[in-house]
Amino acid sequence: MLILVTGGAANGKSRYAESLCMRAASPRFYLAAMQPYGAEGEKRITRHRAMREGKGFETIERYTDYASLVLPARGTALLECICNLTANEMFDENGSVSDPVERVLSGVDALCAQCETLIVVTNDVGSDGVSYAPETEAYIAALGTINRALAVRADTVVELVAGIPIAVKGELPI
């Protein structure tokens, strides 16, 4: 079972995704793709950690290459988030740029095969009407392609708006 959770920043995606996990099979793995850059990143990570505390998640930090990740057991995994994973697969620290689409999708496919339930959090980065530098536009396009491909694979797609879940595909699990 694959559930895709999308929505704008600060709309309650993480909270909702975690509540989905709590209803799904143990063990529960939290797959963190966000690289902690600076104080602001740390703050976000601290906030998410506090939300997960006591919920029985084992956290696995991994920024790229989910295709070769072996989960310790079969259960539920929450991958957060595709926006970070896509950026990590696309841009490396030396400034080189590569196509992230296949790597992100094969990573999700590999996880899906190892989980009873996989919950994936993403965001819609194409909706601000701003024009960006070509590399950023390429990122937007890649993430759009990935989101569409994930939605095809997903049993359920949920958008969060002001903390309220909306079914985009399938029925709301909760």
């Binding site: 704008g8 920043a9 980065v125 194409g126 002001a162």
Partner: peptide
């Protein structure tokens, strides 16, 4: 809250606050 995460910190904090 949608769109590319702004480079400017105060813009990011504003999106967060509105959301």
């Amino acid at each position: 809250g949608s769109g590319v995460i702004p480079l400017d910190r105060s813009e990011r904090e504003w999106r967060e606050a509105v959301g």
